[in-house]
C-alpha cells in the first residue's frame, strides 16, 4: 500500500531567533515501517515534523515527501500524509463526524467511502458519539476524533507527534493496537516520550538531542546489544547476599528484591550474562533468570548525558569495555 512512500530529510537546519533548533539533520525513510523519533523536550522532534508538513520553513537543507517539497508543492506533498502534530483543535462547534468529513473533503474521499471509513474508524478507535460537538468532548475523545480524521483517507505515510499524549491507558492500548496494524503497510514516523511504547511499535529509532541526530538504529539491534545490562534472578530457596560473593567480579551492583530474588547489574555482554547464570546455579537452584530494564531507556539515558555518543546514521553506542577474565567454573 505504501507504494514507494518516502520521507527525505537532507541537512535540515532550523533556527529561531538565531538559536539552532535543528542542526544538519538527515534521514531517509522508505517503505512500510515504523520509526520512533526520540529525544528530550526541546530536542527538535516536533520542529522536524512541522518542517515535514510545511508548517515551518527550513533555514537550510530540504525535506521531501514522495519527492515533493512541501514548500514548493504543498498539496502534492501532503496528499499522501496524515499528520498529527501537537494537539490539534478543530472547529469546536463541529461534530466529530463533521471534523472527519472536513478532512475527507480535502482529501477527496467520496461519500460512500467516507461512510465506510468512518464506520471502520469508529470501531477501531471506539470513537465517542460522532453527533456530539468536539468542543464538548474530553481531551482524549477529541484526540481520537482527530486521529480518525488523520486516517480517514488512509494515507500511506503517517507523521505522529506523541499520538497517545493525553489519553488514558485504555485509549492508549486502542491506538497502539491500531498502529501495530497500520505499520504493516504504512510508513510511520512517530515521536514519543513513552519508550516502552516505541519499543513495542517501532522497528527503528532516531535519537535527537539538541537539534542533532545522535543515533539511528533498529530497535532489534539496540535490544540485542543493550537490553540486558541488568538481570533478575529468582532462586528456588532463600539466598543471603554474602552467598553471592562469587559473582562480584562480574556484577557491579546487587539489588535485593526479597530473600530469593535479586537484580544484578553487569556490563551487558552475553558472555558475562551466561557466566553469571552459571555462577548463580552454583549458589542455589535457579527458578528464573531474565533480562530487566529497557534497551531504549538505557540508550536514552546514555545519549542524553553523553550527547556525542553515536553518530549521524546507523550507529549504535560504543560497546562496553571487555569483562574481566572469567574464572574457571
Amino acid at each position: 500500500m505504501t507504494g514507494g512512500a518516502r520521507l527525505e530529510v537532507e541537512h535540515l537546519v532550523k533556527s529561531f531567533s538565531g538559536r539552532r533548533a535543528l542542526d544538519d539533520v538527515s534521514f531517509d525513510l522508505q517503505g512500510s515501517r515504523s520509526v520512533g523519533y526520540l529525544g528530550p523536550n526541546g530536542a527538535g522532534k516536533t520542529t522536524t515534523l512541522k518542517l515535514l508538513v510545511g508548517l515551518l520553513r527550513p533555514s537550510g537543507g530540504r525535506v521531501a515527501i514522495d519527492g515533493f517539497d512541501p514548500q514548493v508543492d504543498r498539496k502534492r506533498a501532503l496528499e499522501r500524509v496524515g499528520a498529527l502534530i501537537e494537539t490539534p483543535e478543530p472547529y469546536p462547534q463541529f461534530t466529530g463526524r463533521e471534523v472527519i468529513e472536513y478532512a475527507g473533503g480535502f482529501r477527496g474521499v467520496g461519500s460512500a467511502d467516507l461512510r465506510d471509513r468512518i464506520a471502520h474508524l469508529q470501531e477501531a478507535l471506539e470513537l465517542p458519539p460522532l453527533d456530539q460537538k468536539v468542543g464538548r468532548l474530553s481531551k482524549g475523545q477529541r484526540q481520537r476524533v482527530v486521529i480518525a480524521a488523520t486516517l480517514v483517507a488512509d494515507p500511506p505515510i503517517l507523521l505522529l507527534d506523541e499520538p497517545t499524549s493525553g489519553l488514558d491507558p485504555a485509549e492508549r492500548v486502542r491506538i497502539r493496537t491500531l498502529l501495530l496494524q497500520l505499520k504493516k503497510d504504512h510508513l510511520i514516523l512517530m515521536s514519543s516520550h513513552l519508550l516502552n511504547e516505541v519499543t513495542e511499535l517501532c522497528d527503528e529509532v532516531i535519537f535527537l538531542n539538541q537539534g542533532k541526530v545522535v543515533l539511528r538504529d533498529s530497535v532489534e539491534h539496540l535490544s540485542a546489544r543493550l537490553t540486558v545490562r541488568q538481570v533478575e534472578v529468582e532462586f528456588a530457596e532463600p539466598v543471603r547476599p554474602d552467598q553471592l560473593s562469587p559473582l562480584t567480579a562480574l556484577v557491579h551492583r546487587f539489588e535485593s528484591m526479597n530473600e530469593r530474588r535479586y537484580r544484578l547489574s553487569f556490563d551487558g555482554r552475553d558472555e558475562s550474562r551466561i557466566r553469571i547464570l552459571q555462577l548463580c546455579q552454583g549458589v542455589a537452584p535457579v527458578l528464573s533468570y531474565a533480562g530487566a530494564g529497557s534497551a531504549l531507556e538505557d540508550v536514552y539515558m546514555q545519549l542524553m548525558t553523553e550527547p556525542t555518543i553515536g553518530g549521524r546514521e546507523t550507529r549504535a553506542p560504543p560497546p562496553p569495555p571487555p569483562p574481566p577474565p572469567l574464572p574457571d567454573p
Binding site: 496528499e79 480535502f106 482529501r107 477527496g108 467511502d113 488512509d154 494515507p155 500511506p156
Partner: peptide, 8 residues
C-alpha cells in the same frame, strides 16, 4: 483503495 489518492 484510498491510499495515495490524489486530493481533489
Amino acid at each position: 483503495m484510498m491510499a495515495g489518492a490524489r486530493a481533489p
